[in-house]
Amino acid sequence: MLHAILIINKAGGLIYNRDFTEGLAKLTSNEYLVMAGTFHGVHAITSRISPVSPSSGMEVLETDTFKIFCFQTLTGVKFLLITDPSQANVDVPSRRVYELYADFVMKNPFYNPEMPIRIDLFDANVQKLVRQLNAAG
């Protein structure tokens, strides 16, 4: 079960966040920004303190009520997927979201790189994808 998707640009700024499950506790928009920045920093630290380098940095953050999966692209964009604790992995969903990002964000001439994503077509396709994934279990 996928609860939310966040996209963080390579400088640590939050450029997209969307919740998909009703009735969950929400953060304020400012807290989202802080969380994205903090995660970005922690991620950088985890990749540096690894005894064996190079390291990809943190990939999963696990608690008893939720999991955060982090998928970092080669260009430094991070996709955070917040899910149920029962979710085993998100290899397929994160790649699909990346695909949508490449198609509907990067190929859109009206989008400025590194800026917040406000694109209806991307929104609609992400919603559709998440509905599909959550329905499939």
Partner: peptide, 9 residues
């Protein structure tokens, strides 16, 4: 296919 025109345009 991949172009969403922003609202102001």
């Amino acid at each position: 296919k991949f172009i969403a025109v922003p609202r102001e345009m």
